[in-house]
């Protein structure tokens, strides 16, 4: 079930038209300003965005609403709701051909919906854990009295110099039955424990990978905060807990919102981590999309899932935006 990778002529035409529109836009800007204008400096990025963001989104939408022959269809979305949708058609046809009753085999497959719910649940847990662990870390790092703060910043950044795939695979050598942790446990005479291939292992991998994305936005906001505000709070009789609760925390909300966004979004779309640390036992939505494209070669169904994913992200972004209307935390939400 492999979709032909060559694009229809009109897709090329659309891309060409996009570039021409881009050229005309630049031309108009020059004409309107009778010369160069500052906005022209953004044109390399605009071009980049057209080629690598706008065009792919158009292509995904095209694939999501068409079948393998390029005809318009909503089957890909029906397939999301019922993963047996295509199979049931075949089973019904087969039953008719053989004149037998196959009604017991006609069922609804819930894998896509279940996986989406599971991904949201995992992402929610990951975000909460990151927030609980990351907020105190950010407070500590931003505290001017602590000399260790800036060292901690560096310690957080250094692992990020390495690709996350490698860091995830490295966890495997720690957690395996013959891994480092189990070897130490054996030496101590405690016996081996099963650490790999559970959903908690996947969660660990996610928290490990995404924690810095929670810490840094909060740290940036706290670092910029006027520390005299806490001094004033102390002068007015707040103890340190009250200062944290009534002054620091409300002022750091934009950073928290940013952090939640930056952890939640990649968590929902996580793939690879469940496969490496979870042993393919459970799938997350990212794995599902990957398998549609790479294993089944069904680009149309995969695109429909991707489109739904994007929609979900847009909705959650607009909800989060309400919590940080001025975009103080970097305006990510």
């Amino acid at each position: 079930m492999l979709t032909d990778m060559s694009l229809p002529w009109w897709a090329w035409a659309a891309m060409g038209a996009g570039l021409i529109v881009f050229a005309v836009m630049i031309g108009m800007t020059i004409k309107r300003n009778r010369g160069m204008h500052r906005s022209l400096f953004a044109s390399p990025y605009t071009l980049w965005m057209i080629i690598f963001t706008v065009v792919p989104v158009i292509l995904i939408s095209y694939y999501a609403f068409t079948d393998a022959n390029g005809n318009f269809t909503l089957d890909n979305f029906k397939n999301f709701w019922d993963s047996h949708y295509e199979a049931n058609k075949v089973i019904k046809a087969e039953a008719e051909r053989l004149g037998v009753d196959y009604s017991q085999y006609i069922t609804r497959g819930t894998v896509n919906v279940d996986t989406l719910v599971y991904s949201l649940w995992m992402a929610f847990q990951c975000t909460i854990i990151c927030l609980v662990m990351g907020y105190p870390a950010a407070l500590f790092m931003a505290d001017r009295k602590m000399k260790l703060g800036s060292t901690l910043v560096v310690l957080f950044i250094i692992p990020m110099w390495m690709n996350f795939l490698l860091r995830t695979v490295a966890w495997m050598t720690l957690l395996e039955d013959s891994g480092l942790i189990n070897q130490v446990l054996e030496l101590l005479g405690l016996g081996k424990i099963q650490l790999m291939y559970t959903s908690n292992t996947v969660l660990l991998g996610m928290v490990y990978n995404f924690l810095p994305f929670m810490v840094f936005p909060i740290y940036t906001v706290l670092n910029k905060m006027d520390y005299r505000l806490s001094e004033a709070a102390a002068d007015l009789g707040c103890n340190s807990f009250q200062t944290l609760y009534k002054v620091t925390m409300p002022l750091s909300i934009p950073g928290v919102v940013s952090g939640i966004t930056m952890v939640f979004m990649p968590s929902v779309t996580t793939f690879f981590i469940p496969r490496v640390l979870g042993g393919g036992y459970t799938m997350m939505f990212g794995d599902l999309i990957e398998s549609k494209f790479l294993t089944e070669g069904n680009w149309n169904a995969g695109s429909a899932l991707s489109l739904l994913m994007m929609l979900l992200i847009l909705v959650s972004l607009s909800i989060l935006r309400k919590a940080d209307p001025n975009g103080e935390g970097g305006g990510l939400a």
Binding site: S83, A87, V90, I91, G109, T110, V111, T282, M283
Partner: peptide, 11 residues
């Protein structure tokens, strides 16, 4: 059909 059944296992 194979793919749908395999996904049931995964689920």
């Amino acid at each position: 059909v194979y793919e749908a059944l395999w996904m049931d296992l995964k689920n």
